[in-house]
Design a binder for these strands. Structure first.
Lengths: 350, 350
DNA sequence: CGAGCGAGTGGAAACGTTTCCAGTGGCGAG
DNA sequence: CTCGCCACTGGAAACGTTTCCACTCGCTCG
């Protein structure tokens, strides 16, 4: 029932000074007898050092933070696992914060780092506002951003070329004989949304596809299955020809969740995947592998990005003066059942 | 590049004492002029109070922790969302820790609560060892357990009757005309694994099913899709009759991830779901809703359990002396396509 | 008109550590 | 024998807060 034992109690019981007790427990210079006495006292009292007091004195907390908009997205789970693996090896603890979609909340979180509860931050923001960039640069502790920032910003960054990723998806579909390719994007006020749109428009032009790229794009309300389903229903019903037949034969989705939503929409409309409609996702999350049908997906190397980000953060912590680095992880295509069928002859209308 | 401003700097700039500055910022008694001066000084310096020092002085951190074995399991994501919603409203921050499957790590985590980095803990352990129970009871801060503990343990608890949940699943399958029902369980050294097995054996007996319940059970290495697939392949191939036809017509899985793995296995073996094999999952995660085919699943009310757990924790924090409570959330069955031979829209039963 | 009160203030202690600094004693070298 | 070095120790300061306490001052009330 007594209060939690402090180092003072340990020192008293061991019959040594507070200073010696601290030294003994922390492996600083101390005689073997002192160490033994203090260890015994600590053990018998069940002493556990107070992290708060320690942090205050030492000026750091041995905690790192990982902030994402939506923990529900499996891509972040993968990233988190990778980060945790790296971080744990260095004696840090990882704390995960879900910021929600409100940019103001994200800014708040970054600002609150100055409160000292974490020694560093890995953040993967969907929406990068000017205000957020300002806060990230003046943050009280080192920050590594997973995602794309304007070139001028001097910050450690791990990014991927998701525009090129969309290009891979489109190329794969074209090679598979698809020509009427639609694009299911996430919100355009997000960084991934913007770059993926660019990637789609470029790929569309490069392959000289018709009709105009603009008419085959649809924007979902957010990067979720439900939003993907709704947006895909819109897109697909907009592209029926005069006889009601589908005028699209493939869909690229800006992430796996949207892709899953799209497949749902297709099935609801009585379409077969991949026969009537091929679908490509993006992120290559676990979900893509075990969805039915298996989802062809563009891997953006989430685990790899997480690992890089964590390593960058640790490096910056040990040397605050080192030049900032920008690591780019290249996308790769993982082909699964959702796009694999015998190539349809060009121009065939279904 | 001056150091981070402290309250001392603010007080100096405002021309008041440290004590007054603190009071002014915290809304304690202070003259309007003092408040104005201090506020202005704090603003112009960009002062942000140090959470560590504050915690040390105040004796609490305004952080709560949520510990789970595997953040990759969507059931925990749902729980976490619910918990966060509740605690955020009370001014606490939520910190998520993934302990991994090693019970020793979980024990370590609970023990480390005494370090003062969190004021309370919600924990949902898969494996409940005696050692863990001891640590939970003597934990330095209030703990709420999501899961089942021995009746004698005095701790705030939110549990569900998952044995009864398995019963619902079996009953539903029997009503749908299935008689040869297999059970795909998770590891038997976990609490859910044990109680779900009990539920299955009881239900099996109640419905007078044959053959012996033991022969139709299979245990997966863990609660993941991959392990589910492997175990289901074993189980299904073991139950071919002499002519190679399948001797099972339904499978109950101990969670949704295992169920998804089982469906995979079935498809690989050329079986149709639900025609050849009906599959029921458990947890009714988001995944169940958007999987293809839609997965019939026993909802164990994850969000509800999370909410209850958070509320229990807050209540305990505000009144440490209150008697412990044990809340039980009842399972319900959500029927989807994976058990319905004639496609009907999804709906909730019971 | 004096006592008493309440609002407001500043000094200083405290939270539990780590670490600087000044000692103490023992012991080998000169 | 004495000096200096070394290993070890304890006192005390410090980290940045909050809050207790004592104090002043202007008012009101009896």
């Amino acid at each position: 029932m007594s209060a939690r034992p402090t180092l003072i109690h340990v020192a008293e019981l061991a019959g040594v000074s507070l200073a010696s007790a601290s030294r003994a427990l922390n492996g600083m210079v101390a005689s073997p007898e002192t160490v033994a006495k203090v260890r015994a006292a600590a053990l018998s009292l069940g002493y556990i050092p107070d992290a708060t007091a320690r942090s205050l004195k030492l000026g750091h907390s041995l905690q790192l933070a990982f902030a994402v908009d939506d923990v529900g997205n499996p891509v972040y789970v993968e990233m988190m696992r990778a980060i945790e693996t790296v971080v744990r090896g260095s004696g840090y603890r990882l704390q995960v914060s879900s910021t929600g979609t409100d940019p103001a909340e994200t800014v708040d979180l970054v600002r609150s780092l100055a409160r000292g509860y974490a020694d560093g931050l890995v953040i993967s923001p969907l929406r990068v506002t000017d205000e957020l960039i300002v806060e990230l640069k003046r943050a009280a502790v080192p920050v590594v951003v997973v995602g794309t920032l304007p070139d001028t910003v001097q910050l450690d960054t791990v990014q991927t070329d998701s525009a090129r990723g969309v290009g891979l998806a489109v190329a794969h579909l074209v090679e598979s004989g698809r020509r009427r390719i639609g694009f299911l994007n996430g919100p355009l006020d997000t960084t991934p949304g913007m770059s993926r749109r660019r990637g789609f428009v470029e790929a569309y032009a490069a392959h000289q596809l018709a009709p105009a790229a603009g008419s085959v794009q649809e924007v979902a309300a957010d990067f979720t299955v439900a939003a993907g389903r709704r947006a895909a229903l819109d897109l697909l019903s907009r592209h029926r020809d005069a006889r009601g037949a589908l005028a699209l034969d493939a869909l690229v989705a800006a992430n796996d969740l949207l892709a899953v939503g799209a497949i749902h929409a297709a099935l609801e409309l009585g379409l077969q995947v991949p026969e009537d409609l091929a679908v490509v996702g993006m992120d290559d999350t676990e979900l893509a592998g075990f969805f039915n049908p298996g989802l062809t997906s563009v891997s953006l190397g989430s685990a790899e990005r997480g690992r890089h980000a964590a390593e960058l953060l640790l490096a910056r912590l040990s040397d605050p003066a080192r030049p900032t680095r920008r690591i780019v992880v290249q996308p790769t295509l993982v082909v699964r059942a959702s796009t694999q069928t015998d190539p349809t002859p060009e121009g065939t209308v279904r």
